[in-house]
């Protein structure tokens, strides 16, 4: 069973609480997402610049700990703004489980990358990035 916990418990930031709840609910309702969750062993940093907030997700098989700050050595780091962050969840998953960057939501994310509103470090960990994208996709 997948477990998503807040490192700071009741003192977690709004962003950490939101990310943790979204992740837990997404994994709970989809067997494919659950499998992705179980296969992840990575640290993912998300920085939302206009909110001045960061969260680090530490995936370790059946468990993900969500920290309300930047911590550890992230495998992947996303630096973005709140609007683009919400848009990331709209990415649809296409054939072979790959994120679809050709439709409108996907193109919006590509535009954010080109304009610098979304910066991704650790692109060489493409499999991990695709898993994380699938985990947070609500489309």
């Amino acid at each position: 069973m997948a477990e998503v916990v807040l490192a700071e418990g009741e003192g977690a930031s709004g962003l950490a609480s939101m990310v943790a709840t979204l992740l837990a609910q997404n994994v709970e309702r989809s067997r494919e997402k659950f499998e992705d969750f179980r296969r992840l062993s990575a640290e993912v940093l998300i920085e939302v610049a206009d909110l001045g907030q960061s969260v680090t997700l530490s995936f370790d098989r059946d468990r993900c700990t969500v920290h309300s700050r930047s911590t550890g050595r992230p495998t992947i780091a996303l630096r973005t703004d709140s609007e683009t962050f919400m848009a990331l969840g709209q990415i649809r998953i296409g054939p072979l489980g790959l994120p679809n960057y050709l439709d409108a939501p996907g193109r919006a994310v590509l535009r954010a990358m080109v304009s610098g509103r979304l910066r991704i470090h650790g692109l060489r960990h493409l499999r991990t990035l695709n898993r994380v994208t699938r985990l947070f996709s609500v489309a």
Binding site: S13, G14, L15, S17, M18, T21, L22, Q25, N26, R29, V48, L51, Q53, S82, F85, M86, G89, Q90, V138, A139
Partner: peptide
């Protein structure tokens, strides 16, 4: 909501959608 100034309860994937 992201800043924790407002609290949301419900299905987050739907809200994000």
């Amino acid at each position: 909501i992201m800043l924790g100034q407002l609290k949301l309860r419900g299905d987050f994937p739907t809200i994000v959608r």
